[in-house]
């Protein structure tokens, strides 16, 4: 049983906090999203190369490559891909740098799920309109 049937949006979530990743993934699937989860920067790049999602939700602090490095690599290889940064890092500079590198938006944890879904839908609409 699902809570809502949304337009079929494919989302990749990259975060090294596995408990967060699994629960957020479960809740988004309940809302009709097709969700893939990975817990490192390298795995995020690999996942996008294998099956490019509509939107990526990306943490900033991860083992191996950090989120800004992943963002730069993704934007280089997939310029039209929309990436939302979702992080516990409170640095204004990190957010600014993320936006300069082409992130769609920068959201702080903890986030209200409806707010995140709203951003994902906006990012999806922008990608489709491009």
């Amino acid at each position: 049983m699902k809570l809502h049937e949304k337009e079929h949006i494919r989302v990749l979530i990259a975060d090294d906090e596995v408990e967060f990743l699994e629960t957020l993934g479960t809740r988004m699937k309940l809302r009709g999203f097709e969700v893939t989860t990975v817990n490192s920067g390298g795995a995020a790049i690999q996942a996008v190369k294998q099956d490019t999602p509509d939107v990526v939700v990306l943490d900033l602090k991860m083992p191996d490559l950090n989120g800004l490095e992943v963002l730069a690599k993704l934007k280089e290889d997939f310029p039209a891909l929309e990436v939302i940064i979702l992080t516990g890092q409170g640095s204004f500079e990190a957010g600014k740098e993320g936006m300069e590198k082409g992130a769609f938006d920068y959201i702080m944890k903890p986030v209200d799920l409806n707010q995140l879904i709203g951003k994902i839908e906006e990012a999806y609409a922008k990608a489709k309109a491009a």
Binding site: F20, T23, L24, G88, Q89, G90, P110
Partner: peptide, 18 residues
């Protein structure tokens, strides 16, 4: 530590939502 606490709060928030 504030970054770490934001992470644990995010996990608690998602589980309460679940």
């Amino acid at each position: 530590i504030s970054h770490e606490i934001k992470n644990t709060m995010a996990i608690i928030n998602e589980n309460a939502g679940l």
